[in-house]
Amino acid sequence: MNAWDLSLLHQINTAWSHPVLDWLMPALSAIEAWLPLIIVAVLFTGWRGGKRARVMLLCLGVAVGLGDGVISNTLKKAIGRVRPRDAMESVIVRDLGTASPAFMRLFEKPVVKVCKPNGEVRGKSFPSSHTVNMFAAATVIACFYRRAGLIMYLLAAAVAYSRIYCGAHWPSDIPPSMALGVLTGLGVVATLRRIMKPVTH
């Protein structure tokens, strides 16, 4: 591991910590906790947004499915990079408390603990699926609605940062994952627009 990678991990994961961030960062990472809100937003957008919004949602679904299920999954298996929390001691692991249904985790006290690696590997580090998915989604939205896309890019950047803060990813995992997400979003939008153009004309 590069010295700058270790140094930046220490700064974000340990030195730049705060009790408010100990809840906020795991909350941003816990996509499943936001699923009810995401479903409502998708349904409302599809209902009220018209044809343009429905095409955007189609692109969004394809981009996230491709980014998560194919690109991230394939690269994780091929590269096999170990997560910081599984590779070294002193990394602080942060997560939301357990609750059911998942959105109730947002109201639980966050769990903050110093990891002690025991040889167990809980997933692979590169790429960051959260980052790929969020930047793919932000790119798709920006292709259809620029202002909303800019907001999504800010949210995507916050989610990417949260993965380092929570000890799940190395800092060097993030920039390539951002690029993969952007390229996936652009590729899906360009491809589906080309496929759908003869159908809509």
Score class of each variant (00 low, 15 high):
residue 105 R to G: 01
residue 113 K to G: 02
residue 91 V to A: 03
residue 171 P to D: 02
residue 148 A to V: 11
residue 82 V to I: 15
residue 156 A to N: 13
residue 152 M to A: 15
residue 166 C to E: 04
residue 132 V to N: 00
residue 164 I to F: 05
residue 136 A to G: 07
residue 142 A to M: 12
residue 76 K to M: 11
residue 152 M to K: 10
residue 92 I to D: 05
residue 132 V to L: 02
residue 94 R to Q: 08
residue 148 A to M: 13
residue 115 C to P: 08
residue 126 F to D: 01
residue 103 F to G: 06
residue 125 S to Q: 02
residue 142 A to N: 14
residue 145 Y to H: 13
residue 119 G to F: 02
residue 119 G to Q: 08
residue 70 V to T: 12
residue 67 G to D: 06
residue 112 V to N: 04
residue 143 C to H: 13
residue 117 P to Q: 01
residue 86 D to Q: 08
residue 61 G to E: 04
residue 94 R to Y: 01
residue 141 I to A: 02
residue 148 A to R: 14
residue 101 P to H: 09
residue 128 S to Q: 08
residue 66 L to P: 07
residue 171 P to F: 04
residue 103 F to P: 14
residue 63 A to M: 04
residue 166 C to G: 09
residue 144 F to C: 09
residue 135 F to P: 01
residue 71 I to K: 04
residue 70 V to W: 08
residue 60 L to V: 11
residue 121 V to I: 15
residue 144 F to A: 10
residue 125 S to R: 01
residue 95 D to K: 14
residue 153 Y to A: 12
residue 125 S to M: 02
residue 128 S to P: 09
residue 122 R to E: 03
residue 87 A to M: 05
residue 61 G to A: 03
residue 115 C to T: 15
residue 136 A to V: 08
residue 125 S to C: 05
residue 122 R to P: 07
residue 158 A to R: 11
residue 83 R to V: 05
residue 104 M to Y: 11
residue 85 R to V: 14
residue 104 M to S: 11
residue 161 Y to L: 14
residue 64 V to K: 07
residue 110 P to M: 00
residue 98 T to W: 10
residue 145 Y to K: 11
residue 103 F to H: 12
residue 80 G to L: 09
residue 70 V to C: 10
residue 69 G to N: 13
residue 148 A to N: 13
residue 86 D to I: 10
residue 78 A to L: 13
residue 124 K to E: 10
residue 99 A to S: 13
residue 73 N to Q: 15
residue 155 L to P: 14
residue 82 V to Y: 09
residue 158 A to Q: 05
residue 88 M to S: 15
residue 117 P to E: 00
residue 77 K to R: 15
residue 115 C to W: 07
residue 105 R to F: 00
residue 115 C to Q: 15
residue 151 I to E: 01
